[in-house]
Design a protein around this nucleic acid. Structure first.
Lengths: 343, 343
DNA sequence: CAGGCCGACGCAAGCGCTTCCAATCGCCGC
DNA sequence: GCGGCGATTGGAAGCGCTTGCGTCGGCCTG
């Protein structure tokens, strides 16, 4: 294994100079730097990560904790974070909590607290105060993506805003009987998000002078199947007869479209559907949706972290609200005037 | 930061003994070990990964390279690998190649070759000889998941076998005009897999005395939309009239089901569809499929690696073929006797 | 022309572990 | 009862890098 001394010898300088030349820290004459770089290249030298880490105390490695892997949102965040980290020369080590429940404590106690990462990004996780504190006690910056974590800088979208926008779209088309299929507070790890999305639906309705009817809200988990089941219930109840529905995720919304189809309803003629996400399947199903950009969220999270790690922590932990936007496709339209003829 | 000396002092032993007690290597009296463990626990001591790595030369960290993140197969493999690695006390650092094309060389040259990982798992990647060699030159074991890599132990499924099984299922139901929608060789990073799956379809047909018709094969990429488009072509051609179709992935197969539905065909009455994967959406769509178990593949890959890393390399690099099985749901049935009435 | 300053570079002290080697000690077999 | 062996423990030498401190000149002011 070629080490720094080999390079030093070949370039005719001290190891100190090699280190400075290669890392760009400290003053090195241009000619010297060039000679060192050449020598390093010729020998195929790469610094030993562990030796470097031991000396500097920095691992150049960020831990990313996700609650699941098999979900579009998380993998997209991961993708964005990974790309940006790589640009900074950092590694991303992945911790997935979707296994057994005690995996969570293992991750925290055995892995994150071991000195393997310089910082952690928690995606859609509500961390306990102890978890946050123990990380901070080790001087490890922490940023959240998704649900806000108290005392931790977070990048997220305005969850109230997205469903509000979706609902306003339907209102503007003339709908007034608008249902909502959203996350089940109890079933989710990130319990604020479903609540906020429901609030956006309610707020928009109220602002339009329509009192939201609780019986038009149906809880579900964030899967296509669950959206399908919820839609069957909603659409099967003759007392409800919504002309449109705001769904808290695209996957659920696709389930809703499928359910409507199976019940002989035409989307959007008999039922307008709008989702949240702009999932990769949304365009295939012609789903109108409010796009969010999880990859961007991952990138921003990394940038926040880098600012904390590399520079002085001049500014207080700032939460970032990322943009979202309405994407109109073919699952929404004006309600049919003769909707009473349905069913 | 509490270090090994703090523990040593508190336990009244030398640092050497602390190291031995905590790592389980070497002989330590039971009583001493206990005292050390207590002291460590009380102080909240955790070894410094970098110091330990520097001394031992092992990072306890495995690099996993995937071509994409947003696909069921990869995330499932990842999930399995991660879970098993964690049990071994290893970290998983993730490298995703789905960015720009030069990301690939960056990953290899800048990251994998830097001393940050003890070994790498390549998922569905055809590595070049140089890539393999440079890794081996650094003494880093390498195992593949998915497509076979020459000279590298690989865990995979029998890609010929899966479509063969799917096709045999259809044959046994009485189908004879069986189409195939498979991967486009040119579009995939892992070009063996689509070819093998096509071969399985052909082999099964021939074995049943049916000559496979090339015009019944339609290439596609592995997405729902692409499956949908291919199915529309296949089903729209009046000269073909397949009664069943073997599709190389569940996502594509779901696209096929949707296409058939949109064309007014009933699945399975007018068209039987069988996929490959047992994707999480398969049961929702009632898709008959050949299940593979990517999480298990990830786990096995880790086990292979551990055997190379921890024990002596007694046995030669063995390739592992993992099981698969037919899952019959409601997308397949006997062909209708009066199929001529269709269209 | 002299004092200072600063850029360029080398020396060497760690960073916090692991592990080889040596020292000690209790116990077994003869 | 004694030599020896293995179990147990400590001492100390690294592992390969980074960086504070110091030295040495050359160049800029005054």
């Amino acid at each position: 294994m070629v080490g720094i001394d080999d390079v030093a010898r070949r370039a005719g300088v001290s190891t100190a100079t090699v280190s400075r030349a290669l890392s760009g820290r400290g003053h090195v004459a241009a000619a010297t730097r060039e000679r060192v770089e050449e020598a390093a290249a010729e020998l195929g030298y790469v610094v030993s990560a562990s030796a470097s880490s031991l000396a500097t105390g920095r691992m150049r490695n960020i831990g990313v904790v996700v609650p699941f892997l098999n979900r579009w949102f998380y993998t997209s965040v991961l993708e964005g974070a990974q790309r940006r980290l790589m640009q900074y020369g950092y590694d991303l080590t992945l911790y997935n909590l979707s296994g057994s429940s005690n995996e969570r404590s293992t991750v925290f106690e055995q892995f994150l607290l071991r000195q393997r990462v310089d910082a952690v990004i928690a995606v859609s996780l509500e961390l306990s105060a102890e978890e946050v504190d123990s990380l901070h006690a080790l001087g490890k910056p922490l940023v959240g993506v998704g649900g806000p974590i108290r005392g931790v800088p977070t990048v997220s979208i305005d969850d109230v805003g997205v469903t509000r926008l979706a609902t306003e779209h339907l209102l503007s088309l003339g709908h007034t009987v608008i249902g909502h299929i959203g996350g089940d507070v109890d079933a989710e790890m990130s319990f604020h998000m479903p609540t906020n999305r429901r609030l956006g639906w309610e707020d928009a309705l109220r602002d339009a002078g329509v009192e939201p009817r609780p019986e038009l809200y149906f809880p579900a988990v964030f899967t296509m199947e669950s959206g399908y089941v919820a839609a069957k219930q909603m659409l099967g109840d003759p007392r409800l007869r919504p002309t449109a529905v705001v769904v808290a995720s695209d996957e659920m919304a696709i389930g809703v479209i499928l359910a409507a189809r199976d019940m002989g309803l035409d989307v959007p003629r008999d039922l307008s559907v709008v989702g949240i996400d702009d999932h990769e399947l949304a365009s295939f199903f012609g789903l109108t949706t409010v796009a969010q950009f999880p990859e961007q969220q991952g990138e921003r999270a990394v940038e926040l972290l880098m600012r904390e790690l590399e520079q002085s922590r001049d500014d207080e932990p700032s939460n970032l609200q990322l943009p979202f936007e309405l994407v109109v496709r073919s699952s929404t339209s004006r309600p049919r005037p003769d909707r009473e003829s349905r069913g």
